[in-house]
Design a protein around this nucleic acid. Sequence first.
RNA 1: GCCGGGUUGGUGGAAUGGCAUACACGGAUGUCUCAAACACAUCUGCCCGAGAGGGCUUGCGGGUUCGAGUCCCGCACCCGGCACCA
Length: 955
Amino acid sequence: MSETNPAAAEAAPHRYTAALAAEIEARWQDFWDAEGTYAAPNPKGDLAGDPEVVARPKKFIMDMFPYPSGAGLHVGHPLGYIATDVYARFQRMTGHNVLHTLGFDAFGLPAEQYAVQTGTHPRVSTEANIKNMQVQLRRLGLGHDKRRSFATIDPDYYKWTQWIFLQIFNSWYDQDAQKARPISELVAQFESGERPVPGGRSWSELSSVERADLLSEYRLAYASDAPVNWCPGLGTVLANEEVTADGRSERGNFPVFKAKLRQWNMRITAYADRLLDDLDALDWPEAIKLQQRNWIGRSEGARVDFPIDGEKITVFTTRPDTLFGATYMVLAPEHPLVEKFTPDAWPEGTHEVWTGGHATPAEAVAAYRAQAASKSDVERQAEAKDKTGVFTGAYATNPVNGQRVPVFIADYVLMGYGTGAIMAVPGHDTRDFAFARAFELPIVCVVEPTDGRGTDPATWDDAFVSHDAKIVNSSGEHVSLDGLNVTEAKARITEWLEREGHGEGTVNFRLRDWLFSRQRYWGEPFPIVYDEDGVAHALPESMLPLELPEVDDYSPRTFDPDDADTQPETPLSRNEDWVNVTLDLGDGPKKYRRETNTMPNWAGSCWYELRYLDPHNSEKLVDPEIERYWMGPREGMPHGGVDLYVGGAEHAVLHLLYARFWSKVLYDLGHISSAEPFHKLFNQGMIQAYVYRDSRGIAVPAAEVEERDGGYWYQGERVTRLLGKMGKSLKNAVTPDEICAEYGADTLRLYEMAMGPLDVSRPWDTRAVVGQFRLLQRLWRNIVDEATGEVTVVDTDDVDEDTLRALHKAIDGVRGDLESMRFNTAIAKVTELNNHLTKRGGPLPRSVAEPLVLLVAPLAPHIAEELWRKLGHTDSVVHQDFPVADPAYVVDETVTCVVQIKGKVKARLEVSPGISEDELEKTALADERVVAALDGAGIRKVIVRAPKLVNIVPA
RNA sequence: GCCGGGUUGGUGGAAUGGCAUACACGGAUGUCUCAAACACAUCUGCCCGAGAGGGCUUGCGGGUUCGAGUCCCGCACCCGGCACCA
């Protein structure tokens, strides 16, 4: 609590109060800014500095940068920033050149929506939010190199985002070399004939449109028609989670249609294998690696062609070994071949449940498609248990045994995965089994069950799914798999399929290309123009940055909510002067139309680590020497990258995968030396907060809830307590500003670090913050006289053993804890030492006070800086060496040895740490409590772990 | 459903297979004070017992081990993520 009693303030005018903390903190924050205390020198360029510091080992310590929201920060936001700051400070004190800074991820939807509502330009509101956040963050004493900060909306920054887009646009993936290469090298291959042009003509015979279309097949950034959730009523495309279960928009409740839209894509799938393989060398949490592996979703299998009417349907299967058990096929409802094979009438004897009650196949297919299209993806998935579908009237042929198999459409098959078609093996696939039962389709057993259920599928309740069993009933004229195990059968059948031209072994990925355009205003404009033939051209580097133009209205044009045949009209497209331009792209002035989509929010965060290194470089994205210095490969980090990247686990796949992808392209093209952006990743937990709800379930202001009689009360009414997220809507937000005002930033920092291990979520408890405040007060009082403000430390060599041991044990423990980011236990060890010193009383020897202050410095930098100055030093505590423990004092003079009998503690002995096992055993067996407890019983065995433990096992 | 993580006092949490409950919050008592606050000191897992002391205890049930919060198997519950992935 802040000091309010005048009498007490008079008695202790120099007590460490909130007011004094505020004064100290403001003073040192000003000092650090003025001195450039946290400036990290580059080896060259405008940020070059002290060669001695540059020569040290480097540490690049980074946070996931924030989006500057209008709501400002609550105490949950800075958790990671404080952690990286403590770690960075520790690294500075252990001889490293530390790069630590923070920028802003400032393009995004909230600012645009605010602009639509208020007419305020997104730049205006965003920059105001950034300013506000900078004030809040500065108050925490974060040691950022502010020269390196930027926002992704700065034209100097997004110039390079656009430049990278052009690098990607102007590249293709060479499958032989397994790397990206400039598109000009592909053109040269086509020109020389080294690579044949599809269709048999020569490159010079192709029109410009044909050339552009061909290159588009190769470019790493390409435009294509992609299915999207189009909402005419809002005039925008929606993400899946913005669409309700019944296919309407969450906002406004308008209908949403699946529409094809010309969109930019990034060919991230070309990198699937490398993104997967390179994970192995990264120091990331296994859980996150696993999520990325699952997201990429590599599966080995085979493509199999099923002949139909002289053509074929190609399926992907991971179980080609079960081909003899394929009794029907299913296509995704959107599959383009469906119309082609749908006959005019139902074949003779078509089963009634197959037709869905429709008179013709065309009618049935149309009805099912309409029904599927009206449902959202979420709903299609929600109804997964009840298998729906309809017969197309067509039959294909199973290549392995020549059997006719009916072709269905069903929405459990997805157009976006594999080939959009499956062979159904109901005997050995759970979903196929359910579908077959619903539609009375034949089920065949081709994998011998190992669970005793027998080989008659009619008696089964579910499919038999196993990868470790014998193949049966799989013998045909041409090939037999009987008796082989699953793995052998896969190899045998794949070989057969390839030999006979019915298919091939293949690898399929779940990963899809990255949809890269948005119909928004507040994003990076594409540096792309279209000529009169509609061919896309890259702007030359000299025309970058392509700045966002002013527009009258930020809202997209809306349409009749029910009119599916509309197209989005982007805000940028309305600025005709900007859109229609005459440019000279090297072949004289010509008319062009600009691309009017903008890049997604991810773009700016895909490469920002690189710009921190060399933020003002106007010639290059980053100077190669500087990049190699901070991020190049090193011992233990073969792909290079940031030394530590801290952020929330919610970015496990998208952001981290996209950033890895961009790194690899830039690496392939020779722009950077690091093939991975983030060598070590750490996911901090969430700070949760209690949510109090009244009897109607409405959240009540958490700050006004009282606890008494074992319950929680708000305005006399009993309320219930649950753990939830912190935020405005749940009325439980606590801001760093209020904690700083009541206790100071050092207390807030300590509390956030002391709450628990950094990687787990834990609830905020404002009442408990005072504990860390008391720690700082006691620390202060151990060094400063509260009445006079004078330092009480004495210069003496005469320090008691207990204190030396307490000090060096603390140094040893805190060092290890900070290195491995166990900040909570580091603080506990500092507390223990400080409590020892409080209890000890008397003036502190300088040789104890100084290391104590240095131990605290990474955690509570302001008070440490103040005490360091009071102790007579004129240089900043930030660049002092972290104390090193004297091993002689880390071990105790005597240790407590526990004597157990059958694992139960029966006696404790004080012994020397160096005691031998024999002597310890003798001492233990001679102890009277042990003798009494053994009560004459013989001894079977004695386990001795000197000097801590003896365990006696009686006969 | 699948994948990942978790479950330790009134609360947040600590514990290389070796004294379970460090450190902090909260609580109790005392010293100081006219009184209170602050500070300092002592106590504070649960049960039995006046006490000495004894028994029990890391979600539940098994197992491995001289010894398990920690390793293995099964179950329950909680939190994330993914989801008809062929």
